[in-house]
Every structure is written in C-alpha cells, then in structure tokens.
Amino acid sequence: MARQDLILIETICLHYKIEISFVDALHGIGLIEIETYENNKFIHQDKISDLEKVIRLHRDLNVNLEGIDVVFNLLRKEMALREEVNNLRNRLRLYEGG
C-alpha cells in the first residue's frame, strides 16, 4: 500500500534514532496515533511535528511521557486561550474605535 501521507514507523525510528518500543509507548499513552495497514505501522505525516516535539521535550528536557502528555494538554489549553484573547482583543477594538 503506497500512501504518501503515511510514513512507515521503521523509517521514522531510523531517522530519529528511536526504538520502536518508544513509538509504541507514545501510542499507548495516546500521544501519537498509529495507523496499521497490511501489518505495517505508519504515522501520518501531519503528526510528524507532534512526534518531533515529543522527542525534543524528552531529550532536551528529560521530560517523561506522562509529563509530555501533561505539557501537550496544557499547550492545547493555552492555544485555545490565546485564540480567545485574540477574539476579545478584536472585539475590544470595536469599543476603542469610538
């Protein structure tokens, strides 16, 4: 099955020098989605950024997987809050404009 938007887990492990078990653990904790076709496991290319972020937080800051899960949840919350702040700021311009 040749789907260009899916990347074989083995390829990814080779690149980032990570073990397959590490990817499985990420999947287990719900940090990364894995898709399986014909007994091969893949990660969607849109999820590569998340995977890279996980690897960086793990390696640069020694954050364990549970910690990364917490970080991701907080970052999502922060993102939603930032959007809300932006919307409120735009609404504020309504009143500041006179």
Binding site: D46, I48, R93
Partner: peptide, 20 residues
C-alpha cells in the same frame, strides 16, 4: 479574522531523506 493563522501545507523547508 485579525490575528488568524493560515497553514499552507508542504510549503515550508524541504524534508530530509524523503521526509515530508
């Protein structure tokens, strides 16, 4: 909206060794 971010897929830097 003002402050909104648009994502244009695949128009960043080139992937390495077949990466996206």
């Amino acid at each position: 909206e003002n402050g909104q971010i648009i994502k244009i897929k695949g128009q960043g830097g080139p992937g390495v060794n077949g990466g996206p």
